[in-house]
Structure formats: structure tokens, C-alpha cells
């Protein structure tokens, strides 16, 4: 059964098309991820699904209810952890959970038990009566996860659940998410720009860029789109490359070839260790200078790179991005 059905969901802010005709389905009990760079339209999509924004066009059904016509019913079925904290920082952790539980109609007695359980679940025991202001970022996120679970929602929305967390806190949040899925069988919709997060957690992933879904499938399906292995060549563009690229295309072992930015060529191959010598031979013959060769087993990062011709994000730039950055920096330095 599909618990989220999005049909041509579109959101425009003035001239900016934030979400462009997005159609997808989320199955009951799966972890579905929206993977894409910052500003790709992930949060806007979530905001529409959780009824905080009206779509400009299209619509969606969440837990069987129309997000435009029946927002109240949708709200009863969902739990949300927003990207930025939405806690009342002047109140204690316990009070934050208590207010939430009462808003969701949980009886006072049941609520007290549930809060106790959840403080244990997210390992915040002992912090119940501390003002939230004094929590660390990771603790706030955990408190928010606990809060979203109070009510046992059918669908849990997590917008960048580990954004800005240190590696330890991140691993903890991942554990909680897996536990929620395995024990409660809850459907989880999450957005992330960490491909590692999508790979480790999600049953299915939609890759989103400039407001459009550019690929959707299981992690394995997506990876198989780019072939088993990828070779990246960093070349100088000196006019020879056209012939060189033609030569490469004619090689049997190369399934796909793409010219990315700055003379970087990516090759999808079945067997990189066998192909690399052939490629280097061709390069030598045609006097194409190859500065660097790198080969990778594909990750979602490569899927993204293949589909969009750019890296997923700046902070964790790819190998060649570093090279590019260094060059830019040098150029800037020279001008000074």
C-alpha cells in the first residue's frame, strides 16, 4: 500500500520554481529518502506534504488524505522533525514533550509513562527538568525525535535529521531511525544531502535537483545506472580530446562516457583495473595529458555526479572538486 502519493506537486515562489512537478509514491513501512543538494526543494516538498505550505500546482495524499482538502486529517497521522529545532527553549525537555503530547490528545497519565520511555530511548535520561536552552545541538535533535514519536504517528517526516551533528550523534540518530522502523514498522520519509545517510538508511531513494526528481529507486538500482565501476580521468583540454573521446567510445569495455566540467571525463565500466591500461595507452598514443586517474565503486555521489554533472555538496567535495578549488584559489591569489 502507498501511504504517500504525490501527483505533480509544484511550488513556485515568485519567479523561482522550488519544486517542479514532483510525482512519487512511498510504500507503507519503508524508509524513503529525498537526496539532493541544499536548495534542491527537499524542505519545500516536506512542507507541502505536512500541510504547512500550499502547493502551487498538483497535490498529494498522505496517509490516504488529501493535503489540500483534508489538512487536519493529515496532521493527525504524521510526526515531523523539522530541519531547524522547533522546541520551546525556555521550557524544560519534559515540558516540551508534555505540551506536545497534550496537543496530540494523549491522556496525562499515559503521557507521563510515554515521556519516561522516550527519554530513555533517546538517551536523555536525567535531562528531563533541564531548560532546553542548555541542551547541545545533538541533544535537541534527539529530544525532537522523542517528541515526534510520542504520538506513534503513521508516517514520520525527518527533514535533514543529522544536519550539523557530530559523527557520534549522527550514528546515534541513525540507530534510532533503524530501531523505529524495525520495531514500530513506521513509514519514514526523510530528506538528506548526505549520500552516506541515504545509502545506510533508505530502502528507496529519490534524487532531487533543481526541484525535479531525476532518479528514483533502491540504492542498488540507482547504482546500477552508473555501471559497476567508474573511472574518472582528469585531462587537459587541448583540442585532442575529441579524437580521444571517440577512441574511448569505441572501446568495448566502456559502457558509458560523460564529459564533465574542467576536462574531467567519467567512464562507466565493468572492470576498471583491466580498462585503465587501455585508456592510458590511447591517451599516450594521442598525446593527451592525463593528470590524474581515479576509479571508484559507485556510490550515490557518483549517481548524482553522473546525472547532474556536479557534486552533491560543497562541504564534502569530491576528489576533483578539491583540485578545482585549489586551482581557483591559485588564480585568485595570482590576481592580487
Amino acid at each position: 500500500m502507498d501511504v504517500i502519493e504525490s501527483e505533480g506537486l509544484t511550488k513556485r515562489f515568485g519567479d523561482v520554481l522550488a519544486v517542479d512537478n514532483v510525482t512519487f509514491r512511498v510504500r507503507e513501512g519503508e524508509i524513503f529518502g529525498f537526496l539532493g543538494p541544499n536548495g534542491a526543494g527537499k524542505t519545500t516538498t516536506i512542507n507541502m506534504l505536512i500541510t504547512l505550505m500550499r502547493p502551487t500546482e498538483g497535490s498529494a495524499r498522505v496517509a490516504g488524505y488529501d493535503i489540500i482538502k483534508e489538512p487536519d486529517k493529515v496532521r493527525k497521522k504524521i510526526g515531523v522533525v523539522f530541519q531547524d529545532p522547533t522546541l520551546d527553549r525556555r521550557l524544560t525537555g519534559w515540558e516540551n514533550l508534555y505540551i506536545h503530547g497534550r496537543l496530540y490528545g494523549i491522556s496525562s497519565r499515559e503521557l507521563k509513562l510515554r515521556i519516561k520511555e522516550l527519554f530513555e530511548f533517546v538517551e536523555l535520561k536525567g535531562w528531563e527538568n533541564k531548560i532546553v536552552q542548555y541542551y547541545s545541538g545533538g541533544m535537541m535533535r534527539r529530544l525532537e525525535i522523542a517528541r515526534a514519536l510520542l504520538y506513534n504517528p503513521e508516517i514520520l517526516f525527518l527533514d535533514e535529521p543529522t544536519l550539523g551533528l557530530d559523527p557520534q550523534s549522527r550514528a546515534k540518530v541513525w540507530d534510532y531511525i533503524r530501531e523505529i522502523k524495525s520495531e514500530e514498522g513506521m513509514t519514514i520519509f526523510l530528506t538528506t544531502h548526505y549520500m552516506e545517510e541515504a545509502e545506510k538508511l533508505c530502502d528507496r531513494v529519490a534524487i532531487i535537483d533543481y526541484g525535479r526528481i531525476i532518479a528514483l529507486g533502491t540504492v542498488e538500482e540507482l547504482k546500477s545506472k552508473v555501471g559497476n565501476e567508474i573511472i574518472y580521468l582528469n585531462t587537459t583540454l587541448d583540442g585532442q580530446e575529441k579524437i580521444f573521446i571517440e577512441r574511448l567510445r569505441s572501446l568495448d569495455s566502456i559502457r558509458d562516457l560523460k564529459v564533465l566540467k574542467d576536462g574531467i571525463i567519467s567512464l562507466s565500466v565493468n572492470n576498471a583495473p583491466e580498462t585503465i591500461p587501455k585508456v592510458l595507452q590511447e591517451a599516450q598514443r594521442l598525446e593527451v595529458e592525463i593528470r590524474e586517474v581515479r576509479y571508484l565503486r559507485p556510490s550515490l555521489e557518483d549517481v548524482f555526479l553522473q546525472l547532474t554533472g556536479k557534486g552533491l555538496r560543497d562541504e564534502e567535495a569530491t576528489f576533483f572538486d578539491h583540485v578545482r578549488m585549489r586551482r581557483i584559489r591559485m588564480r585568485r591569489g595570482g590576481r592580487r
Binding site: T51, L52, V80, D88, R89, H100
Partner: peptide
């Protein structure tokens, strides 16, 4: 500013 408004707006009340 501090996000609590979203918590209230998304609540089924």
C-alpha cells in the same frame, strides 16, 4: 524565529 510556531501549526488541533 525559534521554530516553535511550526510545532503548533502542524499539530492536529
Amino acid at each position: 524565529e525559534f521554530g516553535f510556531l511550526k510545532e503548533v501549526l502542524v499539530a492536529p488541533v
